[in-house]
Each structure stands twice: as C-alpha cells, then as structure tokens.
Write a protein that binds this DNA or RNA. Structure first.
Length: 599
RNA sequence: GGUCCCAUAGUUCAAUGGAUAGAACGAAAGUUUCCUAAACUUUAAAUCCGUGUUCGAUUCACGGUGGGACUACCA
C-alpha cells in the first residue's frame, strides 16, 4: 500500500485515540511537503483542532508522536504552523524504488482492471479540404486521452465519424467538374485531400465572383444574389441528385472522397494517429428520424403547423430546437441522436466521449438534454471533451481567408527546423542519413505534440510557428534530450562493467534530499495517470513528465555518478537514473511522443 | 437578449480550499579537467475589480469589467 494511504488511515486512527474525534481516512488532507520545508509528506492538522481543543502546533505534535510510534516508515517529524511534516525513512524510499523497477509498465494498470468500456470519437473531418492545425489539436487530444484511459485499465474504442456527405463536398464536386479538365491527384502528383481542397477554394472564389456580379449588374440584394448564384444552385442540385442516388453523381462522389481519404490516411500515419472503427456519415445520417417521431408520439416533442418538429428546452433555460424540417428531413442534431443510439445498441458502453471544439458546447448541451427527454438511460453517459481554438499571433485561423496552418506543411516545416538546428550542433555524427532523418522526425513530432498537449484542453492555445519548436524549457525536445542523456549514462555504465538491467537496492546508507525528491515524484506517477484519466487531461501528464525531467537534470548536475567512489551510492544513483528514464518514456508514450536513443 | 468558456510575471503555461503563487521563454550575471553546454546556477518580475463563505481563497458563491464561442429549416 502506498505511504499516503497508510498515513491517512493511521492519522484517522490517531485522531480517534488521541482526541476522541471522528475523521474518515479519505478526509485526511495529505500532500507532499513543499521543497523549502524539511520532510517528505505533510498532514494538514487544522481540521483536527476542533476535536483536540488545542493549538494547531500542539495538535500536530501529539499526532506526530502517535505516527512515529505506530508507523514503521515514519522516521521523524516537525510541525510548522498547522502543518505536520513527516520524514519518511530511507529504507522505505529504497523499497519504493525497487518496487517501481520491478513493475513492468509502471503507471499502467492491467487492461480491463477498471472494467469500463469507453468509446472516444475524435478527428471527424469533412472530406472537402485537408487537415489543419485545429484538427491536429483534436487528433492529438483524442488519441492521447484514449491512451491515458487505457493506461487506467479501461477498454477503449477509438472511432472516427467521417463527414463524407453534404453540401460541402458537393461544392468541391461542382468545381472539379467545371474547372479541372479531368485532372486527378495522380495526373498532377498532388496529395488527394489537397487536390480536392483546391477545388473547394475554387468554388468559393467563383461563388463570390458570381454574387458580386449579380449585385452589380442585376441590382439584387446580397441575400438574393447568394441564393441565385448559378454555381450554388448547381451544388444544391448535386446534393439532391446524390440523395436521390443518381448514378453519375454518386460515382463522382465516391471517386473524390476516395482521393481525400487516401490523403487523410497519409496524414494520420505521419501524426501517429489511428482508429479502431471508422463510421461514415453517408451510412448513418438517416437514422434518428424515427427516434424523433417516437418522441413526438410520447408527447416529449411538438410539431409546428408548418410540419417541422421541435424540442422545447425553455424549461432548462435554453431555447427551442429544431429536429425535423418541414419536409421531414433531418438536421445535424437528429443525426447525432441517431448515431449515439446506434452505438449504445451496438456496444454496452459506460461512456462515450466526443472530442469536439468548444464552438459546439451548445450543441452537446442540447444533445444530452434531448436524449434525456427521450428517455434514453444512456443520456448521462455522453461526455463532450471540449477544447479551445488554436490561434495564431495575428489572430484566428479562418479557412476562407487562407490563414490556416496546413497540417502536412506544418509537420514538414518542423522536421526541417529540427534538421537545421541539429546539424548546426553536429549532434548526430556517425548516424546514417536515414537514421538521422528518423530522429528529426521524432523531435519534430514530439515538439508539436507536447506543445499542444501540455495546455489544458479547454483553454485557447496561442500557436507561434516560429517559437513552437523550442529545444529548451517546457518542451518535448527538452524531455527527449533528457531521456537520451539517461540512455547515454546507462550505456557508459554498461561499458564500464556495471549491470544496469537489475539493481541491488540492499543498501543502508541514507538517501540524499534530492534523491528523495525524485523518488517521491516517481511514486506519484500512478496517481497522476489516474487523475489525468478522470479529467481527460493529457496536460497533467505532460507537466508531470516535465517536472521529473527537470528534477533529474538538476540532480544529475550535482553528482558525478560514474565517478562516485562509494559503490553503494553509485548503485542507487544509477538505478534512479534508469527508473527515471523508464517513467519519463512511459509518460511520453501516453502523449504519443516517441523517444530517440540519441539526439 | 440568452447559454457556456476564459482572465496569473513583458510573453507562453502551472498550482485536489493550504505554508513564502511554481516553471519556461525573453532580460541581467555566472559555470565546461564530469553524462551530450539542446545542460546547470544566480537576479528582477504576476493572481482583472468588488463583496461573501472560513482557521485559510488563484481556486468556491454572487456582482462587475475585459476577451472568446454558440444562439440556422448549415454540417
């Protein structure tokens, strides 16, 4: 059992035996001792003063004596104000270290240990343009949260709902027919998603030109002109044809979607993202309608005179929400209700997490409410993992204004930067070009992933392309670098004849302050993983790993491990180095960051 | 108008209601007989405003101010 748990139980007992008070072990406040104070673990004693009827200092002393007598691991204690600082014995810390070393996949629970089945939907792109920086945040976040939940022992199903139908793809199709002259990604050598995206842009340009022309030449109002622009009418016509199953249209739709999806697959591969199951909206968008009609029968929903069906949410402080149009067709919300229903039918899930940007907070608020109204017992199992926008130094990204940062380009540029910096420093001499390129790729992706994941999901990220790939400070490359140094130390120790596979911890000598601090951090790792899983927050893991890496660097600077005369201390320090390396790489694994052996 | 989110050093990010609010970048000064100086050590620098809850508030509640998102018979 962990020391914190042992202490909280003992403190609870102590309060009863010393002060005749009742306090549940879970309510005992235990935290790590701040660095400026002596001790390892601190108990907050303020809450006990109402039982002890003494000053916080006295209360702390009495409790401290009790713990020293009754817990082996407690070596000493001191009381500052209302804080009881406990010193844990070196023997205990060494045991902890040995335990961590023995635990395969430290920080990870056994698969199935937590026994929840969780579906996580992320990415969910439209098939009319390539992925950009906003999608990158979504993809990294979804993938990492899935890994963290797995580490917590849950069964996780990663899904992607591809928005492959609708007016947006029709726009690209119209433009392609009009302007391409039959060219294809193969004939132009372009990546499929970029190829199709270009036609989406061409559509928009032509559309704007036509609207302007109508306004000027025919004196139409802006709204009228927008509706009457021939190219837009063509797109709408195409959507109708598609829904009617027109052979030629469906054929073109298939062809263009295939180009885009091929491009996406390539990008996903580069980003290190994958899915267990991919849904296509074209296959699911019609469901949901019958659920709405049933809701109408039950009287949970209502029908307007014109024929449309609505939910009245004014009782919940919200508005009225449309669910079926006058013509009986469904809207986005209806589709989402349908797909959620299908999924809960298909899998016995305990949770379904949607990784979707915060511009859809309202949508998910409404979704949960309506599902509850419709009487689905799974309504409360829906979770929206909402994340903030990614902004650039000069403002927001807008696809129409061309101020988006393209995902493929960004990765390429970051690899270039990594290569340039690395070459200047001459760090990879002796590596073949191929090996070196692999390292540059790991650095670039590590930088990008870490940069995005270290920020609390719900906060807006300010992305500065120039500063993003920093090799110092709280960055991915800094952590990777620390790891490679650790590997290098171990290599050297091996060369000198020390077996670093397994350490002998049977040493009596005291562990120094700095070492204790690191062991304490290491011991905390499983807790952090648990907390990150509960909050869907890779940021917790990221900041933990950074702290550990930094602590290790400081520790390492103070001691010359390999020159240490005392064989016992040398073993501890080398062992600590090895364990740190393992925990750092475990943490980064949950973020999807790969670790090079050298850099 | 309504719903939701955000506000911390010059900048980018931290802090289960706990001690003197942590880091990093940038700025100023230093450290290479030792693992890889992509490191380490110093210094200066911040909780938007007000009220409340209590032993104790960056954190919780209420009210402001500032910023953002949403509020389509679009997806």
């Amino acid at each position: 059992m962990e020391i914190k748990n042992i202490l909280s139980v003992k403190v609870s007992e102590g309060v009863t035996s010393c002060f005749n008070g009742e306090i549940a072990a879970d309510d005992v406040q235990i935290q790590e001792t701040r660095k400026d104070f002596e001790g390892d673990i601190t108990v907050v004693v303020f809450p006990f003063t109402r039982y002890s009827r003494r000053s916080p200092e006295e209360t702390g002393k009495i409790l401290g004596d009790y713990l020293k007598k009754n817990v082996d691991a407690v070596e000493d204690f001191n009381v500052v104000k209302g804080f009881l600082n406990i010193v844990i014995s070196s023997e205990y810390w060494l045991e902890v270290l040995a335990d961590i070393e023995d635990t395969e996949n430290y920080g990870y629970s056994e698969p199935g240990a937590a026994s929840k089945t969780i579906m996580i939907e992320y990415s969910s792109p439209n098939t009319n343009k390539p992925l950009h920086l906003g999608h990158i945040r979504n993809n990294f976040l979804g993938w990492s949260v899935a890994e963290i939940l797995k580490a917590n022992g849950h069964r996780v199903i990663k899904t992607n709902l591809v928005n492959d139908r609708g007016i947006h793809i029709c726009k690209s199709m119209v433009a392609w027919k009009e302007f391409s002259g039959g060219s294809t990604p193969e004939s132009t050598g372009m990546k499929g998603d970029h190829f199709v995206g270009d036609y989406y842009v061409k559509f928009d340009k032509e559309y704007k030109r036509q609207v302007r022309e109508l306004v000027e030449k025919e004196n139409l109002g802006e709204e009228d002109a927008k509706n009457r622009a021939p190219i837009m009418q063509e797109a709408q016509e195409m959507l109708r044809a598609w829904e009617a199953g027109d052979k030629e249209t469906v054929e073109l739709w298939r062809r263009m979607n295939a180009w885009v999806l091929e491009g996406f697959d390539e990008t996903y591969k580069v980003l290190g993202i994958d899915f267990d199951k991919v849904y296509f909206e074209s296959q699911t968008y019609k469901k949901g309608k019958e659920l709405i009609l049933k809701g109408l029968e039950k009287g949970v929903l209502y029908r307007k005179e014109s024929g449309s069906i609505w939910a009245d949410l004014t009782g919940d402080g919200l508005d009225h929400k449309l669910l079926l149009r006058d013509d009986g067709t469904s809207v986005y919300m209806t589709q989402d209700i349908g797909t959620a229903y299908m999924r809960f039918e298909e899998f016995p899930m305990d949770e379904e997490i949607y990784v979707v940007g915060n511009e859809q907070n309202y949508h998910f608020q409404v979704l949960a409410l309506i599902c509850r109204k419709l009487g689905f017992e799974w309504a409360d199992k829906i979770k929206h993992l909402s994340y903030g926008m990614v902004e650039l130094p000069d403002g927001k990204m807008k696809s129409r204004e061309g101020t988006v940062v393209d995902a493929d380009n960004l990765v390429k540029e970051m690899v270039d930067t990594a290569r340039t910096i690395s070459r200047e420093l001459g760090k990879l001499e002796g590596y073949t070009d191929e090996e070196a390129e692999e390292v540059y790729r790991k650095i670039a992706l590590g930088a990008l992933k870490y940069f995005i994941l270290k920020v609390d999901p719900k906060k807006t990220i300010l992305f500065n392309p120039k500063e993003s790939i920093d090799f110092n400070g709280n960055t991915g490359p800094f952590i990777q670098y620390t790891y490679t140094r650790i590997r290098s130390v171990l290599r050297k120790a091996n060369e000198e004849g020390t077996n670093t596979d397994k350490f002998d911890w049977d040493i009596k000598s005291a562990v120094s302050l700095k070492e204790r601090e690191i062991i304490r951090s290491l011991a905390r790792f499983p807790e952090v993983v648990k907390e990150a899983g509960a909050n869907y927050s890779p940021a917790l893991i990221a900041n933990y790993v950074y702290d550990l890496a930094k602590e290790f660097n400081q520790f390492y600077h103070d001691f010359s491990i390999l020159r240490e005369e005392d064989a016992g201390l040398k073993t501890i320090r080398l062992g600590l180095t090895a364990v740190c390396g393992r925990v750092i790489s475990q943490g980064m694994r949950m973020l999807g960051v790969e670790m090079p052996e050298r850099m």
